[in-house]
Simulated scan of single mutants.
Amino acid sequence: MLDGLHDRLHKRVLMLFSLVLACTCAGLVIWDPQSLADKIGGFNVANAPALIWATCTGMIHGIGFKPRFWLWQIVFFPPLAWLVMVVMLISAFV
């Protein structure tokens, strides 16, 4: 079941979306981490690991890698990462 879902997510448009979101989040952290932290409420135990996980998941999906083992397919599920990255980016720019 997960293989079919991941196969449907491996479209170039969705992979490009993942890569753009991940590069944007990583770029904001690298460019000015203090400003980003101030805008998203600080890097704490909840949002810092979520941002790292979402950025890594976006990069993994964006370059076209598909995990084979079912557990990693759940851990690196792109739509959840999209949600986290979009929320963080909205918080950073609004």
Rank of each mutant, 00 (worst) to 15 (best):
I52Q: 06
R68Y: 12
V45C: 07
F43E: 00
L28N: 09
L5S: 10
W72S: 13
M85E: 13
F69K: 14
A26W: 09
G64H: 07
I30R: 05
P49W: 01
L21I: 01
P49L: 04
F17T: 10
W70G: 11
M15G: 03
D7I: 11
V20L: 12
T55N: 04
P79F: 13
L19S: 06
I52P: 06
G4L: 12
W31G: 07
W72P: 06
G62R: 02
N44W: 06
N47D: 04
L2W: 13
M15K: 10
V13E: 12
H6C: 01
G58D: 08
S18G: 07
D32H: 09
G42Q: 02
G42C: 02
A50N: 01
W72M: 15
W31A: 14
A48Y: 13
T24H: 01
L16H: 06
R8P: 04
F43D: 00
G62S: 03
F77M: 05
L19R: 07
V84N: 13
L2S: 11
G41W: 01
L5Y: 10
C56K: 11
P79I: 13
T55D: 02
S35C: 01
F17I: 09
A54N: 08
A22M: 01
L5D: 07
A50K: 00
R12D: 12
N44H: 10
R12E: 10
L80D: 08
L14A: 03
A54H: 07
D32V: 10
S35A: 10
W72V: 09
G62Y: 01
L14F: 05
T24K: 03
A37M: 01
Q73R: 15
L21T: 00
M59E: 06
L71T: 11
F43I: 00
L28H: 08
W72R: 10
D3R: 14
G41V: 06
G41D: 05
L36K: 00
L19D: 03
